[in-house]
Nucleic acid binder design. Sequence first.
DNA 1: CTGTTAGCGCGTTCAA
DNA 2: TTGAACGCGCTAACAG
Lengths: 337, 337
Amino acid sequence: MSTILDVCKLANVSKATVSRVINGTGQVKESTREKVFSAMQSLGYRPNRLAQALATNKTHTIGLVVSDFDGIHFGLLLKQAAASAEFAKKQLIVTDGHNDPDYEYEVIMQLEAQCDAVVLYSRTLTDDHIQRLHQQLTIPIVVINRDLPEQLFHSVSFQQEDAIKLMMGHLLDNGHRQIACITGHMMNPTGIARLNGYKYSLAQLGVNFDEKLVKHGVYDMKSGYQACKELINDGVSFTAIIAFNDCMALGALRALTEAGIQVPEQVSIIGIDNDPVSEFFTPRLTTVKLPIADMTKQAVELAITLCDETKATHSYQYKGQLIERESVMPVRSVLSS
Amino acid sequence: MSTILDVCKLANVSKATVSRVINGTGQVKESTREKVFSAMQSLGYRPNRLAQALATNKTHTIGLVVSDFDGIHFGLLLKQAAASAEFAKKQLIVTDGHNDPDYEYEVIMQLEAQCDAVVLYSRTLTDDHIQRLHQQLTIPIVVINRDLPEQLFHSVSFQQEDAIKLMMGHLLDNGHRQIACITGHMMNPTGIARLNGYKYSLAQLGVNFDEKLVKHGVYDMKSGYQACKELINDGVSFTAIIAFNDCMALGALRALTEAGIQVPEQVSIIGIDNDPVSEFFTPRLTTVKLPIADMTKQAVELAITLCDETKATHSYQYKGQLIERESVMPVRSVLSS
DNA sequence: CTGTTAGCGCGTTCAA
DNA sequence: TTGAACGCGCTAACAG
């Protein structure tokens, strides 16, 4: 691995000159520029980015921290982040917080010297953690999917509660009143906001909230499947299921199918995410599209902007969009199921 | 962001001493160690990893390069890589090659100064590219899923052809002879090896290879769906479908369902990957498990080992395992479908 | 046990 | 237009 000194020797110039042609700064005579270029060429020289970063205090890297690589939206998020970063010629360094708040916190602090900005998609860090991070960090941080009461930092968020209301509205419009609910984790803001949406929609129509209709899942198919099985075994009656994501909705679909219950004839199902697989199940799943790609693009682009110019904190809000397919239909009679 | 100098001043010691307590090297009197510790504490000091790396020529980072973050196995691969890396207290830096060989090549070369080793999972780089990389790079590189004729570098590979033979064997054992094939991309070694497996198995039983039974997909559900639709529209007769991954098999399943063709009663389907969703479709998909997690673990651990000690090139081979579920059954009669 | 000095590979004044 | 010298934050001999 050749260094700038090797280039100097081969081209008979000083480090300063080589540095100038590398970065296109200052004035360099055409002939020497060519000398340097061909020297770099024949040596296969590539500037050491670590050294550059140390010298300039600019890494041209943005950090992406996620609580868990397993997360439902992680794939799409990463893909979009990578695309946006590359477009701006920035490197992306991705880190997993292993669902451990302390570890995640430490990881972000460590990133400070390695990135010009960080994008955080956390489901374990408390609002307080994020607040502290924002204060201690000398680099800007953009938070995805978190709504703090005050807009104290850059954020790109999603209207969780509204999305559920949208789903509930669709179900209620179709005459459903006995609506079972399969939630996600209940110890983070997303889960809580969504459950609030569920309760709110019920209350709006004067439907009593029934604890027995609520089961907690963990956002994967298996938990959706099991939650639905419990629902069936409990013998409670319901005409529709609202799941806090598509995977669990699909798991529930499987459980109903196995139990010989027709979807949507006997029970309607609605999910949220617009997971690509949802379209390939039978029946095709009705869902709410969650604009993860757009949000990620926004967040990364904001982070990139913040690398160079310091801007007032800005926050963006996104909302869901109903995608009607085949898994919801009007209730036939209140007695069904 | 405080530096080592700030700690020096606060603790009234030299950089060398601070460095010693940071790294636990050399001898330091207990009392001064404590002084330094508390100074670091109260400053919230964290060593700058870039500077450390530059000084020691050790980054404690391993690079992971993938052709495309969209790849089917990417999620699991990344998750396992992250777990293995963290276990060894190494950072992971992940990069997407955007399916562009030149870009990918350049990315890897750039990584040289930022990593102690790199793990490559490429489907666009030619064997020749990899060969050149191996020669030019001063850091070790571990290649996943590539079989070069000679074992010239560290590799962790999968017996692609055998896996297809396994699937075909299962179909043939069940009496199938008219077996349609939905392939993946045909310009990389994996696709070619798999198609060879298909042809080989057919030839073994003296079944003629029929061009019309082969359709090319791109490893996603949609392409599997379309390939199967073409098969149906073409009017060729077949009693089974072998798809080069689960997603396409599931897409095909959807197409058959829409066409009113019973699976597996009229047509059997087999996939490969053991994708988590496969279990939740009806019928549950019979497939071959591809040990991506194990392979990744092996590759990353090997890479980590190579950071410290230089070892003779080693290569590991993995093979698939049949998982029988519900989408394959014996042919009823040659006339079916 | 501790401090001094010299790098790591590069960017950037300031003179020349 | 160019080069010498210094600094980025840290580690690593080598003395003391």
